[in-house]
């Protein structure tokens, strides 16, 4: 499974996906979302959805000095929290800004492509598809 942004032009900016992700990760509100929606330079221009691209050769994993980011089947990475020192190189390496940051634990938060957000997207912007 892999999360895909199917059509950003359908996005109304409700951010229901962000709340879904954070809720799933045990933090109602917006404390743990691994997806972000923001305007494309003012509401008049529509929206951008920032999600992990599930790279086949993930730059975030490549720069991890402790192999804390293991390649995931179907693309993307899985975090091994015990190995992570919170250096933040992964965050800098991701060109789309999809490595989110847990300020409390000082560790990255990265999408696991479960599709929970897509199931809550009311306007068919997001879809979880077979990779």
């Amino acid at each position: 499974m892999r999360l895909n942004v199917v059509d950003t032009d359908r996005c109304v900016g409700c951010q229901v996906c962000m709340f879904a992700c954070s809720r799933l990760h045990g933090q109602p509100g917006l404390g743990a979302n691994r997806i972000a929606v923001r305007s494309a330079g003012g509401m008049e221009r529509g929206f951008v959805a920032v999600v992990c691209r599930a790279c086949a050769d993930p730059p975030c994993a490549a720069v991890c000095p402790n192999d804390a980011l293991a390649p995931r089947k179907g693309g993307g990475v899985l975090l091994k929290p015990d190995l992570c020192t919170g250096c933040g190189h992964c965050r800098t390496a991701c060109p789309v800004g999809a490595v989110f940051w847990d300020e409390k634990d000082q560790k990255p938060m990265i999408c696991v492509h479960c599709g929970y957000c897509a199931r809550h997207c009311p306007h068919e912007v997001l879809a979880a598809e077979e990779s």
Partner: peptide
């Protein structure tokens, strides 16, 4: 040309 929503509202009633 576009619809917008308030945050945390799945409806998106704002018409542009």
């Amino acid at each position: 040309g576009r619809r917008l929503a308030c945050t945390h509202c799945p409806v998106g009633c704002v018409h542009i």
